[in-house]
Amino acid sequence: MSKHVVAAVAEIPAGGRKLVSVQGRPIVIFNLEGDFFGLMNRCPHQGADLCAGEVMPLISADQPGDYQVTRAGEIIRCPWHGWEFDIRTGQSWCDPARVRTRRYPVEVAPGAALVRGPYVAETVPVAVEQDYVVVEI
């Protein structure tokens, strides 16, 4: 397990996402209202780039026609065949127990802490006065 600095927090505004590469692994970082989540950028169905998908709310209903729209921006829909994934967990909506995309822990750390290590800042220059998104793989 190692922690990698992948972006400055300011680069990914709330509702935004960024594709990064960590040791050759493509990972999409999402900012959900200040909470950051990382998913493998590969749909478990047939491998499409999840980061190219549409971000949706969760649409649910307990009875026919009783549409409920919740969790705005928390679902990513695969650009190829439309399967939905929960950005917080990587679980698919169609088969949550068996179909999921890999999820990576993400945290925010101040630059001052990062310069002391044990973080790997491969491509992101770190300044002590900024906050950074750190992915653990």
Partner: peptide, 15 residues
């Protein structure tokens, strides 16, 4: 087909 369009019929919660 349901897997890709289930949000159109969200009351269909199982395959």
């Amino acid at each position: 087909t349901w897997r890709g369009v289930r949000s159109e019929v969200p009351w269909v919660k199982q395959p």
